[in-house]
Each structure stands twice: as structure tokens, then as C-alpha cells.
Design a protein around this nucleic acid. Structure first.
Lengths: 215, 215
DNA sequence: GCGACCGTTCTAGTATGCACAAAACGGTCT
DNA sequence: AGACCGTTTTGTGCATACTAGAACGGTCGC
């Protein structure tokens, strides 16, 4: 792969995994020195991240890691809820035996990891990925995965919210149940609720941390 | 605005408006000469278009205007249907007086243009934009607009399908009716159908043109 | 002493040049 | 005559150099 693509992936991972703080400045020469390349591939990597929304570039003023306003984040979670609902709807209609197996395995893995937040977080990712794939719509699944990744830094925050983990697991069970039964409307509704709750919880969190920004 | 951004917009418009044929090669030096700039801003423009999916870049082999496989296009139309449904759902719940006025105006404009395909096409764009905005979710609306633009070259093909235009107008009326009534489920369902029909019609068209590709 | 204006500096944006990789062409060998 | 290999050609990918615009600090004026 070209160096620019490589760098894009690396920087993207650092942002998604929270190693690069939200709002922090991404200096081109600094990054170039750090990775031992010239500014050109760095610029190309940042440009791509800017299009996908992970960083923001202001003309003549450099680029920073995106730190969206709370209301914008709420909008993103709401969109995620709708996209996941769509995936669930299609999955319920098109479920194949291998999808069924993948969903069951992912659900079991979530249950097994229900005592450890970090592990659960990873298995949760697998679980939702399985639903996306079960939609049998590659484009939709890609959109869902991309948005999922983009919201990852914020999802991470909610892990600590009390009692969220067992509730999440129960919701997962309900979702799988509906998909397995071929009940597309219920599957969509449950997935929508599952994600929206996260958005709401996140809103609470933000409101608690920075009351002045919560409006 | 910087030249790269300018060029991105210009090239994007040419693709969306069908002035650049699908699959045609985008040579960097050629474009640079044509626009009187160096290769650098051209490269940056193409890179951004590649991220948004309008062009495809293969390593060391240059970039071409994306010409997705039919099954991929079907997937894109299906995703568009789900996203529009989501917009309609939220619009039905959150309709403000100004949204109501915008929808009515756009519907009237569509009706007035029902004898001319090109005009109807333009007004149709306005109509759907009004629905996106009425969702009061900026992020979702942006996603919808972006996908709408990306599908524009293919939508154009369907204009000629017989009887599509009056049927489309009737569907628009039904959609507005549901949104105005605050009936979110019906609004979503009607919008989904409205777009899916276009996808199906498109599939028919493709099948008719290139039977060997329709599988 | 405080504020505005100008110069410096630093960084993004663009141009140009170079190197490498892949494809096309021609030559040679079978 | 056809296939295979080497060479050339073409164009991407990266590096480096240059330009222009904005932030910052100093100085001058009030």
C-alpha cells in the first residue's frame, strides 16, 4: 500500500482509539518528522481524514482532530440509530444460515465478556458488525462500519455509565431474537432504541461534564 | 477557497451532471494543463473525490470515474431508500411551520413542472432537499444530500422510463400528506417505496441494456 | 501608559523535479 | 509463426523548493 494510505490508517486508528486527543493540533511537519516522510503523504492522509470527518481543516490555519459540538454528536448518534435500524430490518428479511451462526456466536461472546468492559466493547463491535453483514447490502454495511468507527471515541466514554453493560446485553438478546424470527419491524425498532439510548446517555454525560455546553 | 477545493467542486459537478462519462480516465497532467494549475491541487481534488466514492483510484494505475457494478448500484439505491425513510420519519415528528411551507412550495413546483422532465428533475431535487432539512438532523441531511448527488448520474437515466413522472408526483403527494399528518411510520414507508421503485426501475433499465451484467 | 500599525515569522498551499512501478512494444529465441 | 523476455514509455507517488497569507511581537504614535 502507498505511504499516504498507510499513514491515513495509522492516524485514523490513533484517533479512533483515543490516543490522539479530540481537538489536538495535527502539524504537518511534525507528523512528517515523526513518520520519517515528507509533508506530501501527510497532507494526503489528513485530506482524506478531513473528507470522512475525523479531522477538520481550516484554510491557512491547519487541521485539528474533530471535536464536534454536543448537538452535532447527538445528530450523529441519531443517524447511527437509523442506519443500524435499516441493517436490522434487512437482516431480518435476508438472514442466511451463516449469518445466524455469526450472530449467535457474537451474542455468546458478548455474554461471556459481560464482566469486563474492554472485552465487551470489542465483542460489541463484532456483534454489530455481524448485523451489518447480515443486511447483505455491502454499501450500507460499509456506511454503518464507517460511522461506527467515527463514533467509537465517544462510545468509549459510556462504558462507565452504571448498569449499561447488562442492559446492553439484554438488548442484544432482544435484537437477535427479532432478527431470527424474521420480524423486521421489531428488529429495526429495537436496534434504533439500542443506539438511541447510547446517544441519550452520552448527552447526559456531556451535560454533566460541561453544563454550559449542553444546551 | 483554495484551488484544490475549487477543482474538487468543479470536477464533482462535471461527474454528477454527466459531462464526464462513467469509467473515463482522469489523467493528472491532462487535468492540470486544462485548469492551468500544477498536478498537486489536481491530486488533492481527486483524492477527496475518491474518499467520497465518486472516483476510484488504483495504486500506480491512476483514477477513473467510478462505474459501479449493477448490484452495487442496487445496494446504493437501497441505502438511499433507508436514509430517506429515516429523514421522513424524523420530519413527520419534528415538522415546523417553515418546513411545512417549504414542502408545500416544493410540491407545487413539482406539479407545475410535471410536463418537462429536466425541470421536474430539478424541482425533485429541491423537494427531497426540503425533506432532508425537515428532519432537523444536519448530519443525516448531509449524508442524504451527498448520496443523492452521488446517485444523480443514474437517476437521470430513469427520467425516460414511461409514466414514471406522474407516478412520482403522486407519490410525492402521499409522502407530504403523511409527513403533515405527523404519521412517521407511513411517511417512512412511502419514502422507502418511492426510492426503491427508482432502484428497481434502474435495475430493469440496466438489465435491458446489458443483459449479461444483470445477474 | 495604552493602543494601533507595521514587520517578522511560521505554516499552509502550490509548483516542480525525481524515482519507481507497471504496462506496452519490439526483438529474439524456439 | 508464436511465445517469452527485455526495454522503453508513460504516469503515479514522493520529495523538495517556493509563495502567500495569517498570527505574533515590537515599535511608534497618541
Amino acid at each position: 500500500m502507498s505511504r499516504a494510505q498507510d499513514l491515513r490508517q495509522t492516524i485514523e486508528d490513533e484517533i479512533v482509539e483515543g490516543r490522539l486527543a479530540l481537538g489536538s493540533r495535527l502539524d504537518e511537519v511534525q507528523l512528517a518528522a515523526r513518520f520519517g516522510v515528507s509533508r506530501t503523504p501527510i497532507r494526503e492522509a489528513l485530506l482524506q481524514l478531513a473528507v470522512s470527518g475525523l479531522v477538520e481543516t481550516k484554510p491557512r490555519r491547519g487541521t485539528i482532530v474533530s471535536a464536534p459540538e454536543p448537538h452535532h454528536l447527538i445528530a450523529m448518534f441519531e443517524t447511527m440509530a437509523e442506519i443500524e435500524a435499516a441493517c436490522g430490518r434487512l437482516a431480518a428479511r435476508r438472514l442466511m444460515p451463516e449469518d445466524r451462526a455469526a450472530l449467535e456466536a457474537a451474542l455468546d461472546a458478548c455474554a461471556a465478556a459481560s464482566d469486563d468492559c474492554e472485552t465487551y466493547y470489542a465483542e460489541n463491535y463484532v456483534f454489530h458488525g455481524a448485523i451489518y453483514r447480515a443486511s447483505h447490502n455491502r454499501f450500507l454495511a460499509d456506511q454503518a462500519l464507517s460511522l461506527h468507527r467515527r463514533l467509537a471515541p465517544y462510545r468509549r466514554l459510556q462504558l462507565r455509565v452504571r448498569q449499561r453493560l447488562p442492559q446492553s446485553l439484554a438488548e442484544h438478546r432482544g435484537i437477535v431474537e427479532a432478527i431470527m424470527a424474521g420480524d423486521d419491524a421489531t428488529a429495526a425498532e429495537r436496534l434504533r432504541g439500542h443506539i438511541l439510548v447510547q446517544g441519550d446517555r452520552f448527552a447526559d454525560l456531556v451535560a454533566g461534564l460541561r453544563p454550559q455546553d449542553a444546551a
